[in-house]
């Protein structure tokens, strides 16, 4: 039996008929066509599905869809400005090689954004803790951490 839920997705009020067994990731990918969040493992270990729910970075692959009711969800598709201008984190990832294959990137940027939204001036340790649940196989994290630092510095200006 499907149920209707209502929530805010990337700043817009949305409705959806959902199967209670779905995850938020399934809803985003299969109903709304927001496919930036990826099912890298499906069990909350890799972080490729990370989105922001009410300000917190969240593994959408584990998030029961009915829990979304009334909440604010931001996906990677809602991070750039409406005119397409990149968010400073996105821009820094492009400039400093924070992205290679790109599969982890959406989740990585969402974790970074959740951090910088709450803490504009994080230490390296805090950045690394914030993205500890986002596995990247390409970069060794060095240029990802640098990119987040670069973005934080630019956002302060």
């Amino acid at each position: 039996m499907k149920q209707e839920i209502q929530f805010v997705l990337n700043g817009e009020q949305v409705f959806a008929d959902v199967d209670p067994q779905w995850t938020l990731l399934y809803l985003l990918r299969n109903v709304f066509g927001y496919t930036g969040a990826k099912k890298g493992c499906g069990v909350g270990e890799c972080g490729a599905c990370t989105v922001i729910v009410d300000g917190e970075a969240t593994n959408s692959c584990l998030y029961p869809v009915l829990e979304v009711e009334g909440r604010h969800v931001t996906t990677i598709e809602g991070v750039a400005a409406p005119d397409g201008t990149l968010h400073p984190i996105q821009q820094a990832f492009i400039e400093n090689n924070g992205v290679q294959c790109g599969y982890c990137t959406a989740g990585m940027i969402m974790s970074a954004k959740a951090l910088l939204d709450q803490k504009p001036d994080p230490t390296e340790e805090e950045i690394r803790t914030a993205i500890a649940g986002n596995i990247c196989r390409c970069t060794g994290y060095v240029q990802i951490v640098e990119s987040i630092q670069m973005a934080a510095a630019r956002m302060k200006q």
Binding site: A80, L86, G102
Partner: peptide, 13 residues
């Protein structure tokens, strides 16, 4: 910069 791969940071790739 890796501008050619911008879709990877916007979720469109």
């Amino acid at each position: 910069p890796r501008t050619a791969e911008i879709d990877k940071v916007t979720g469109k790739a």
